[in-house]
Design a protein around this nucleic acid. Structure first.
Length: 230
DNA sequence: AACCAGGACGTGA
DNA sequence: TCACGTCATGGT
């Protein structure tokens, strides 16, 4: 009762387990392969990103997955990785046309090519420094959710990610109404949880997992919904 | 064969 | 401010 949010987190965690987000491309020998095929999800390991390439990969994935299924994003990331351009210098070096071609499967490729270019410039300008949220929001193509995803998963900054699933689930639970702003919802979570990036990471991933099971077509398993309300 | 996916931007009112 | 159209591929 005092802390519904923590209770909901515990229920989801118990039900679905650690999610191990953000997914990172995997390797078979030297060859990059899609996330999750071996261990792209890294349950219980919070050491990611382990290097600068992985950090940039997370950022690029956050941009490419805007309103797009992850399976499509993987194809784009793999295209970039295989050409060794899944990094800031590579993105800068590519022509717009070539970049569009490589990220085509992720959809919205005209916009996303521009977004990746803009972000790569920003990334170089940051020179390894952790960006502030406002700085990310000033980059063309980066809105609140993408900014928070980058902060939380690429930089381990405890900045809660609010997405469409979060709205659906928690408005269904009566904890937010449809006129709530992004920042209001974000604050609701941050005010009632320990300021721990690991919890923020897992919670957002659990919300996505729960929504996919309960709010997609053929979504059953929604008895969980009843547990959550208590 | 419509519908939608881990959003953000541009526009008009 | 805010509601609404637009962007695009690949799954069901």
């Amino acid at each position: 009762m005092n802390n519904n949010m923590k209770k909901i987190y515990d229920i989801l965690l118990k039900e679905y387990g650690l999610q191990g987000w953000w997914p990172i491309l995997d390797y078979i020998g030297e060859n990059p392969t899609k996330t999750g095929s071996i261990s792209g999800y890294h349950q219980g390991d919070y050491s990611f990103p382990r290097n600068d390439d992985e950090r940039f990969e997370i950022c690029a994935g956050a941009i490419l997955t805007q309103s797009t299924a992850w399976t499509n994003v993987e194809k784009a990331l793999l295209n970039l990785k295989k050409r060794n351009v899944l990094n800031e210098k590579g993105i800068i070096k590519l022509s717009h046309g070539k970049l569009k071609e490589l990220i085509r499967p992720a959809g919205y490729f005209n916009q996303k090519a521009k977004k990746l270019k803009k972000f790569a410039e920003f990334y170089i300008k940051m020179d390894g420094k952790t960006p502030h949220r406002d700085e990310l929001l000033d980059v063309w193509g980066i809105g609140p959710e993408t900014a928070d995803s980058i902060l939380l998963y690429a930089y381990k900054v405890p900045s809660f990610v609010v997405d469409a699933y979060t709205r659906r689930i928690f408005s269904k639970l009566g904890m937010i109404d449809n006129k709530s702003t992004y920042d209001e919802i974000k604050s609701m979570f941050e005010d009632s949880l320990d300021r721990d990036y690991r919890i923020y990471q897992e919670f957002h991933a659990l919300i996505v997992e729960h929504a996919k099971r309960c709010y997609s077509k053929g979504g059953d398993e929604c008895m969980l919904q009843k547990q959550l309300i208590k």
